[in-house]
Computed example of a mutant assay.
Amino acid sequence: MSGEAVEASSSQAVKAQLRLREMILAGELAGGARIAEVAVSELLGVSRTPVRSALMRLEQEGLLEGLPNGGYAVRTFSERDVADAIELRGTLEGLSARLAAERGAPPVVLREARACLRRIDELLRDPALDDAAFSRYVAFNEEFHRLLSEMSGSALIAKQMERVINLPFASPSGFVVVQANSPAARDMLLIAQDQHGQVLDAIENREGSRAEALMREHSRIAQRNLREALHGAQSHPLPGVQLIRRRA
């Protein structure tokens, strides 16, 4: 498979993930509802290969559970479950950032994180993101958060983080997005990107408390975005790890 074909398939998988998360959040796919590859493929108008990838990732994120006879079912969880999961991730990421600042983050990991943010900066130079660009943003965002976890040098925290991001909507890449191609969405991502840069600055300057506070605030913005999506707020949500939008 050529590089362009691989990228196209990845973009389709991300689109499928976004749409399925949105449907779950909106209650269009009720708790316990069975989901099969063929049905999702027909519903979303994409092939089964990216759908299979999307379903596997949503299972890893805790939104779906595999069924013994094949297929998946929507997990049952409450708004409080989601809020607690995001709060827990923010707590762990804050702790990881503080320890990285206090202990001194490995220079090679800091360089990789800076390079990751530069790639995001390049994407955000355009006035709006198309589907392929947003797919790359999701991947770069996930990579940045992985590197942030690695900076603390704590295998214990990294292990707990792996468990936490499998909770509903707790993954840094657990986007539920509408109007991702709009200039407004791109502007919100710019502010989220600025937060990422501030966290790295705090870690490099050995400002542990500031680094921790920034990551905790990062998760609290995600909490607010999710509440606005759940309760149908008409105003644009504030930027954060989760950018929530409604489809037209």
Rank of each mutant, 00 (worst) to 15 (best):
E142Y: 08
A30T: 08
F144K: 10
Q242K: 12
A30R: 14
I221A: 12
A133R: 15
A185R: 12
D194A: 14
R21D: 01
A248C: 09
L147D: 00
V6G: 08
P168F: 01
I86Y: 01
N166F: 07
E61R: 10
M151I: 09
E204T: 06
R89I: 02
D130P: 02
S53P: 02
V74S: 09
R246M: 08
L110P: 01
M215C: 12
P107T: 05
D130T: 01
K15P: 05
L99I: 03
A39G: 05
I221V: 11
A30W: 04
P183F: 04
A233E: 12
L226R: 04
A233K: 14
E228G: 09
M188F: 05
P183E: 06
Q12G: 06
L189G: 00
R48A: 01
E228Y: 08
I120K: 09
V138D: 13
K15W: 13
A100Y: 08
P168L: 07
P50I: 12
L92F: 07
L129I: 04
S209T: 13
S173H: 01
P127S: 09
L99N: 03
L190V: 15
D126P: 07
N69C: 08
L63F: 00
F169G: 00
A233R: 13
G174I: 06
A128S: 12
M23I: 05
L123K: 04
G70K: 10
M23D: 15
L92Q: 07
E150M: 11
I191A: 13
Q198C: 02
S171P: 00
I165E: 06
G71K: 08
E212D: 10
A170N: 06
M56N: 09
R103W: 09
A5Y: 12
A39V: 05
L189D: 04
I24D: 00
L147T: 01
E37T: 13
A222E: 03
S209K: 10
N205R: 15
F144D: 03
L147Y: 03
D121M: 06
E212Y: 06
P172E: 02
A30D: 02
L189R: 13
N166R: 15
M215Y: 04
R119P: 02
V46P: 05
E207R: 14
D201V: 11
P68A: 00
R136I: 08
I120F: 03
G197W: 00
L88I: 01
